[in-house]
Design a protein around this nucleic acid. Structure first.
Length: 622
RNA sequence: GCCAACGUAGCUCAGUCGGUAGAGCACUUGAUUCGUAAUCAGGGGGUCCGGGGUUCGAUUCCCCGCGUUGGCUCCA
């Protein structure tokens, strides 16, 4: 739509027959979000933004952040608002103020509702720098921001008595911010730096109507239901104890799951020509000095002393892997040499960041190092990408986001030529595999560029798992060499890669992705045999033994309970198949099959059932 | 590490305005022998996270630890 200059966008909206439409929050002018009150400067492409537009949604949430600050200032006149941006889920606002209590949060929420009911117009003001400094003179954070802004006019927004420094745009009136919920509070540092003053952060979400807020809160509740920590306890997969903060304990059922993952992992790695090694957990500090970990990673390492000599528990597997590599001569003819290690590493993470299996202090990486020539990087990376996708697909992750990170502007090591070959190799490999990826210039490791893989779970959440990193530094530091075709000794390129990332974290993702309802091949308990009464216990044992014999994970529920109870408990444990055994089955050598979905497959000969499950298990049906 | 909240039986939680505690599930014993999401009855089980302090008396109030949970990248 082309519009005359001079009018404001609200007038344009009215001309379009949508005057006073309360769902219109802002306007997009040539792709930039602006206020409805802005004046039309000249011919431009205009799109009116509602809550349904991503940009409109952002405006809505940002205005809610202002609403929050408005309410906080009414209740806490001494609070100094700092910044209040939109985040993925909603918004937050940071204040310099004494810590809030949960009661404060309720009061603030009530005050926000009042301001919404008052329906203040939200006005945009352009201020000269001097005036802005004067207006926010009592707020050192705002003053700091104003001083940091480039030349030009500074904008602020006023609603009622509340004035805030802001780029905007904002919704036209506070009245549209119908459904608001403050969700949590937290300490946060000014500009995210631990050395700065700690501020009080309030998080919230907002929607144009209560129904959507309800739906959102319900989705959060559902996510809580599939929390791997809760399911892990219910299904007896793993536990945590005060005696080892951040160190997971794997229980029998969890080990069945973990070992199944490993079994598959080994199978597919053998297929791709990998060797597997295992290096020690504790090594002499001199090794970590050589690798550079002592200089760069010491604060995360567990250090100990053996025979008066300093040692460290390994935080990474690569230095040990290099010792194995160096234990004999290598030829270019062996390349690419693929060496895998399921290495248990220990890292001292800050106590506050620990979180179930997602963030632990000891975990097993599905690590591997590929030694090759610079020319082989592209082919080796292509092969690895294929492996990554194959593995994710087997676990049911079809949606994978890929990122390529290149040389950091400062602090990187290695020659320009080496970087260029490596970056070109990674990009060429991605191109050859026809993979869309996001480029993150300067985000690479200091020792080389990398490709990261993020899997998307069924809730739409994204998890970084896999990584492929080209490393020029480590082989050089360790004086690793190979004999080249021309008879000279050269330093190999080392490609460092992990696919699941951390076994612990990956299993946590698997649990949340399926909410504990594992596909047959992964489920620690695939089958439960349920005799109707004591009389059929012997037959149930026979059936169970036959299943175990066939390599299936089965248990017989021989408790003196009614069938309904046994079925219920099997359902709560998310067992894939329940085999009911009564008189009819014992007589005919059959089992009555009930699926986890509640479907009754009827009675079938035991041998048929075993064949069917073996097939489903072997094919890793999802 | 920092901020906040929380820490009661194996689990989920109630309770004590300060007088040393209770439910459901789980476990165990007995009865029941029951065909697709909970059979009934009895029993055992707690240094109320740890250490100090206030008090005649602390699981409860205060302080210090430890642990758990949510945050600590998003730039007016």
């Amino acid at each position: 739509m082309t519009v005359p200059s001079g009018a404001d966008f609200a007038a344009v909206l009215a001309a379009a027959g949508r005057g006073g439409d309360p769902t219109v929050l802002a306007v997009s002018v040539d792709g930039v979000s602006r206020d409805l009150s802005m004046t039309v400067a000249g011919p431009c492409a205009v799109q009116f933004l509602t809550f349904e537009d991503e940009a409109g949604f952002d405006v809505f949430r940002h205005s809610t952040a202002h609403l929050l600050a408005h309410a906080v200032l009414r209740l806490f006149p001494d609070a100094k608002p700092t910044i209040g941006p939109v985040v993925e889920e909603g918004f937050y606002y940071d204040f310099a103020v004494r810590p809030f209590t949960p009661e404060d949060l309720a009061r603030i929420e009530a005050e926000m509702a009042k301001i919404v009911a008052e329906d203040h117009p939200v006005a945009r003001l352009e201020l000269a720098r001097e005036d802005a400094l004067k207006a926010f003179a009592d707020n050192p954070f705002k003053v700091e921001m104003i001083r940091a802004f480039e030349e030009g006019s500074i904008t602020a927004y006023r609603q009622g008595e509340f004035l805030d420094l802001c780029r905007g745009p904002h919704v036209p009136r506070t009245g549209v911010l119908k459904a608001v919920k403050l969700t949590k509070m937290a300490g946060a540092y000014w500009r995210g730096d631990q050395n700065n003053e700690q501020l009080q952060r309030i998080y919230g979400v907002s929607f144009p109507d209560a129904a959507r807020l309800e739906a959102h809160l319900k989705a959060i509740e559902e996510a809580r239901e599939r929390d791997h920590r809760k399911i892990g306890q219910e299904m007896e997969l793993f536990s945590f104890h005060d005696e080892g903060t951040g160190f997971p304990f794997w229980h029998a059922k969890g080990m069945l799951l973990r070992n199944t993952v490993i079994e598959y992992w080994r199978e597919v790695h053998r297929k791709y020509g990998y060797n597997e090694i295992l290096t020690p957990a504790i090594l002499n500090m001199s090794l970590w000095q050589t690798s550079g970990h002592y200089d760069h990673y010491r604060k995360n390492m567990y250090i100990t002393t053996i025979d008066d000599v300093p040692h460290a528990v390994k935080p990474m597997n690569c230095p040990g892997g290099l010792l194995v590599y160096k234990s004999r001569m290598h030829s270019y003819r062996e390349f690419p040499l693929r060496v895998a290690e399921l290495g248990a590493v220990h890292r001292h993470e800050l106590s506050g960041v620990l979180h179930g299996l997602f963030r632990v202090r000891s975990f097993t990486q599905d690590d591997a190092h590929i030694f090759c020539t610079p020319e082989q990087v592209e082919a080796a990376v292509m092969e690895t990408i294929g492996l990554v996708f194959e593995i994710y697909k087997t676990f049911g992750f079809d949606e994978v986001a890929v990122e390529l990170s290149t040389r950091p502007l400062a602090g990187s090591i290695g020659s320009d030529e080496a970087w260029q070959i490596a970056e070109a190799g990674l990009a060429a490999a991605l191109k050859a595999k026809a993979i869309d990826y996001q480029l993150n210039p300067g985000d690479g490791a200091f020792y080389g560029p990398k490709i990261d893989f993020h899997v998307k779970d069924c809730m739409g959440r994204s998890w970084q798992c896999g990584t492929i990193q080209v490393d020029f530094s480590m082989p050089d530091r360790f004086h690793a060499t190979y004999e080249a075709e021309d008879g000279t000794r050269k330093v190999p390129v080392m490609i460092h890669r992990a696919i699941l990332g951390s076994l612990e974290r990956f299993i946590g993702i698997l649990i949340e992705n399926c909410a504990g309802k594992f596909p047959l091949w992964l489920n620690p308990t695939q089958v439960k045999v349920l005799p109707i009464g004591d009389k059929f216990a012997e037959y149930a044992k026979t059936v169970n033994a036959a299943l175990l014999q066939a390599g299936l994970r089965s248990e017989a529920d021989l408790r003196n309970e009614k069938l309904g109870k046994k079925v219920r408990d099997a359902q709560l444990q998310h067992v894939n198949y329940q085999l009911v055994c009564g008189g009819r089955e014992a007589e005919n050598g059959t089992v009555a099959v009930r699926t986890r979905g509640g479907e009754d497959l009827g009675a079938m000969p035991l041998a048929d059932l075993v064949a069917r499950l073996k097939d489903e298990n072997a094919r890793r049906v999802l």
